[in-house]
Design a binder for these strands. Sequence first.
DNA 1: TTGTACGCGTTATCAC
DNA 2: GTGATAACGCGTACAA
Lengths: 342, 342
Amino acid sequence: MAGLADIAKAAGVSVSTVSRVLNRRAGIKEDTRQRVLDVLNQLPHTARGLGALRRTGVVGLLVPELSNPVFPAFAEALESRAAQAGYASLLCNTRAAMSEKDYVQMLTARGVEGMIFVSPEIANPDSDERRSRREYEELLGEGVRMVFVNGCAPSLDVPDITVDEHLAGYTAARHLLDLGHRRIGFVSGPARALPSRLKQAGWSAALDEAGVEPAAELVAHAAFGAEGGAAAMAELLDGPRPTAVLCSSDVMALGAMREAKRRGLSTPEDLSVVGFDDIGLAAYCQPALTTLAQPIADMAAAAVDELARRLDPDEPPRRATSFSRMFRPTLIVRESTAAPPS
Amino acid sequence: MAGLADIAKAAGVSVSTVSRVLNRRAGIKEDTRQRVLDVLNQLPHTARGLGALRRTGVVGLLVPELSNPVFPAFAEALESRAAQAGYASLLCNTRAAMSEKDYVQMLTARGVEGMIFVSPEIANPDSDERRSRREYEELLGEGVRMVFVNGCAPSLDVPDITVDEHLAGYTAARHLLDLGHRRIGFVSGPARALPSRLKQAGWSAALDEAGVEPAAELVAHAAFGAEGGAAAMAELLDGPRPTAVLCSSDVMALGAMREAKRRGLSTPEDLSVVGFDDIGLAAYCQPALTTLAQPIADMAAAAVDELARRLDPDEPPRRATSFSRMFRPTLIVRESTAAPPS
DNA sequence: TTGTACGCGTTATCAC
DNA sequence: GTGATAACGCGTACAA
């Protein structure tokens, strides 16, 4: 049971300094800060006293947004598994009013033991990758325990529970090729977004394999969201018209289908559409959406279990990257795909 | 600046007893507990020291579920307004893994200053109304500051920001009557759910006004959710077939439309459908859903502002009920409603 | 069931 | 910028 005093003694500083470092207060020289953090990380992570370093049974779940239903779905799955493991969950929406960084600060101050980041800021195509990488490394240095879900950040020493995006793109394209399609478009998210890039690579590989050219004019980039999907679909339909389209998410697929309908094309008769995620409403839209399901429950279980192991004082500390896992998406064929018009 | 010591002195007990009461620990005689709580409530609510009773700038948002997109939408709107008011938000999903009561306990222990309950437990048709009323009254007695959104609990002394459900039902039915419909069904949530009952009353009033009998066989009850909507629609279609159907929520409407399509009926040609909520995807479904929008941003602003006033040490305390407000829903006509088949 | 004594981290103050 | 110190408020172990 180590408290501020022990850390202070080991680092050769005063308790006030340790307190200041842990609470990220200004006015601390960098190397002093580093010395304290070094000591903190050398201490066995069982070292938890009765004060602010005590066990609370609370974890933080950070999701980038709530308007795409896949994130609420992840949140519910994570919360449910965390409860089974004996942890209460606090949910934070990191790209709306408050930044991920601010939430992390607030959660640690509120005595959260660990955090799960779904699509963390480092996977945000709009963020400065180098800066956010440095920020996560600082958190690791401070002993903050965390796990990523779909983090797309293999270079960071954080366990990352992902879905195989490449396989998703490949499987979707393969499904459309099997139906007889040859001109298969790809409605992508922002060009810098790694999940979209990986799916595109899978799509490209499947087309290559089938002897079809994955031409650049078959790919349209747009912002995530239904409006983005509609915009990207409009771009594709203005060019040489594809007979099928693969979308980066179900939400984009809904926007894309709407744009197709606006132009008098019906799905799947004139144009097949494949989504990605399998949000709950995908089965209830007209036509019901063919999509690639993320195994959300399994991924949530893996993420929570990995975090729980890192929080368990009886478990030995473990390197992070070796415990990352990649899950396979599942093709769910519904009504939005069919053979191309003859 | 009053702390545990002041409260203890005024109540004639020790600080540990006050601590135990505030943390809801077992092993406290009821009248001792009551004496402490009485003192707590007589103290001006500016009385906040440096310990667990200090100001933290954090509020809790409690929503019943995340699978109906209307709740994530409320959560984002509330969070955004709370951030404007200088508060960070912690989101809790109260009907999944952990109960509302457990979350309240945990949030107070984590130093949350106040809470906003969207569709609180007392509005849950499956809950024991008397028991949950008592629990809220206990919280009020402990000085917990809270505001309801769509709480449907006028008898409790908690400000309640609601949408006018009766007007929603009336407006939807009126819209369908104006289109020429006469047999208008109602897909309701569980029979005990007050929001559904109020909408049904509005539907009933509009039909009466038009000289149409709101027959019981035109109403079908089912669980909330898309599956429930499908089941209720099946029940209605097994009886004397209506030409239009009004649903308790957009999610139920999607399920209902799916069931109609399964039976070879197309919307709106054979059957008009009206939803309620205006979830983001309502505009992107085929056909786009005619619905009654809740003014989510306005309701969120009202709820946050009311809570903020209650947390402001400079504001005088105010009775709760007199600050409840009811908002008007807006009819949004899209593609799922049309004149009845001739 | 309740009070006392102690441990904890935080904050403020002052010295250097 | 950092350390020493003291006061403070909360939580808990333990004793009554």
